[in-house]
């Protein structure tokens, strides 16, 4: 497979995954804030700030008054904002375009439909009363795309590359959400006697990662900071956890680099190493210094990404 095309497929996977997380983050935060148990979590400014923080465009001046419609437009449909959903979908399609001869017609057709859906979504409707409809459609279409990827492509190198993109992005997005919600939980503590550990934000976070129900099933208790982080970071059976994503990246990279030979410079080696580190971590180690731990994961993920690029995409 061409190195350039591999790179495009990797990024196609990433953009598809990113659209989904961004859309769900908007949806969950907006709608759970409407009846949140404390005043701050219910505050519209607080929610809008959280959204901007999550997409990587945090508000610099906390006293700035954000307009709901313009924030939603920016993150959803603004073609000028590089991290908007519309741009994610556009990039996903462009990347798919250049690899069109390698992917199935069915997959391409779904991406193309997805693109036209987002492109033609009326701005007026979206910012006024279409948030739910739009974001639900985006998340569902992303799921359909993952289904097409899994169900219509040969499970070979091409598949492995796309899946690596998806899982790298999933890990990145989940950790970004954890980061954003960790901030929110810090800021929201104290008000209404809600302590950090039992913050309402942890429930929101789980919902953002579509993991709330399973988490309840597993712990049978109201989420706390500890149980939420353990579930979303370390539990290998939670499909959205960092651990699960790393395991998948590790599996897929074996397809590209089946060398069993010891090579400490390979990406496969690095992924294996990072994976092993988290595999044997326990949450109490992390608890004391969550911020550092989040930063560490983000760094490790981008290190893997850089190495991947060098080894496979940058011939």
């Amino acid at each position: 497979m061409l190195a350039r095309v591999a790179n495009n497929l990797f990024w196609m996977g990433r953009y598809i995954e990113r659209s989904e997380h961004t859309a769900r983050y908007l949806n969950v935060n907006y709608f759970s804030s409407l009846d949140a148990p404390n005043e701050l979590s219910q505050s519209r400014q607080f929610v809008l700030q959280s959204m901007l923080f999550m997409v990587g465009d945090p508000v610099k001046d906390p006293s700035e008054v954000l307009l709901e419609e313009s924030v939603l437009y920016k993150i959803g449909l603004d073609p000028q904002f590089p991290f908007s959903i519309i741009n994610n979908v556009k990039y996903a399609r462009e990347n798919a375009n250049s690899a069109r001869d390698l992917i199935s017609t069915e997959l391409y057709e779904s991406i193309n439909k997805f693109y036209h859906f987002v492109l033609n979504y009326p701005t007026e409707v979206f910012v006024k009363n279409g948030l739910h409809d739009f974001t639900v459609n985006v998340t569902e279409m992303s799921s359909i795309l993952r289904g097409k990827i899994r169900g219509t492509l040969l499970h070979d190198e091409i598949y492995a590359i796309i899946m690596m993109g998806i899982n790298m992005e999933r890990a990145t997005q989940v950790i970004r959400m954890i980061n954003a919600k960790y901030h929110d939980a810090l800021n929201a503590q104290g008000s209404y006697g809600d302590k950090f550990g039992n913050s309402f934000e942890w429930t929101t976070l789980l919902k953002c990662a579509e993991s709330y129900d399973m988490m309840r099933r597993y712990y049978k208790k109201k989420p706390t900071s500890i149980s939420t982080l353990e579930f979303l970071i370390l539990n290998p059976n939670c499909p959205r956890s960092i651990m699960n994503s790393l395991n998948q990246v590790y599996d897929h990279i074996q397809v590209l680099d089946p060398n069993k030979r010891y090579n400490k410079h390979s990406t496969a080696f690095l992924v294996g190493k990072v994976r092993a580190e988290y595999q044997y971590k326990f949450i109490e180690e992390i608890e004391g210094d969550i911020q550092n731990f989040i930063d560490d994961i983000l760094n490790r993920l981008s290190e893997i990404s850089r190495k991947m690029e060098k080894e496979f995409f940058d011939y």
Binding site: M1, L2, A3, R4, V5, R100, D101, E157, Y315
Partner: peptide, 22 residues
């Protein structure tokens, strides 16, 4: 393969494409 110019290069008068495996 569908290639673009930047995917190919010439070395010693033979043409090669850049793949993930070299």
């Amino acid at each position: 393969e569908l290639v673009e110019g930047r995917d190919l290069f010439v070395e010693n008068d033979f043409v090669y494409m850049k793949t993930i495996k070299g």
